[in-house]
Amino acid sequence: MNLTTVIDRMIDQAQQSDPLDTYSILLGTAPATATEWVKGKKVYRWFPVAQSRLIPNYLVVLAPSPDNYRTGDLLEFHGRIDNGQITTFSVRRNTLTIPTVTAMPGPRRTEAVL
């Protein structure tokens, strides 16, 4: 699959989940396709582009910026260049969006008075 297509789909999914979030695009040092696309590319669709040897060449990562927590859960997107599959991972939950669980009181113990 085309590298640009995978990145576009990932950005579109990220903007649907929370349009105010900001991300960085992380690629391996030698992406499986479109290696020329990366050369000289510092920004794509307003997202910074970076390369790391820790990212496998078949994967592109849309990594959240630290200020994403202000609007929703902190999500990271992994896109496989070879088949176009996109997986979402929760990096950190926003405490304002986590439902609170109230503990129910246990049964009351009654004691017989003699």
Rank of each mutant, 00 (worst) to 15 (best):
P64L: 07
Y69P: 06
M104A: 15
T110F: 11
D73Y: 02
R92D: 05
G72C: 00
G84Q: 09
R108C: 11
A103H: 04
F77W: 00
A112W: 06
A63V: 07
R109F: 11
R53Y: 06
Q51S: 12
V91R: 08
V61E: 05
T88Q: 08
M104D: 10
I55L: 03
L62T: 06
T97Q: 14
Y69S: 13
T102D: 10
W46M: 14
V43F: 07
T87L: 13
I98D: 02
V113I: 14
K41F: 02
V113K: 11
P66R: 10
L75A: 01
N68I: 00
M104I: 14
D82R: 13
D67N: 10
Q51V: 08
H78P: 03
P56D: 13
V43Q: 09
T71R: 07
Y58R: 14
V38W: 02
Q51C: 13
V60Q: 03
G106Y: 05
V38Q: 12
R45W: 02
P105L: 09
D82S: 14
I55F: 01
R92Y: 04
V60I: 09
N68G: 02
T95F: 06
T100W: 04
G84F: 05
Y44F: 10
V61I: 15
R45K: 13
T100I: 09
Y69K: 09
F89W: 05
L62G: 04
V49G: 01
V61S: 01
P64S: 13
N94E: 02
K41W: 01
K41V: 05
R53F: 07
G84H: 06
R80P: 00
N57H: 05
S65V: 08
H78N: 13
G84K: 08
L75P: 00
N83E: 05
G40R: 04
G84R: 09
V49T: 05
V60G: 03
R53T: 08
V38G: 04
L62Y: 03
S65Q: 13
T87I: 14
V91A: 07
N68W: 00
D82P: 03
A63G: 06
L62R: 03
D73G: 04
E76Q: 10
V101Q: 11
P66V: 11
G106L: 15
V91W: 03
G79C: 01
K42A: 15
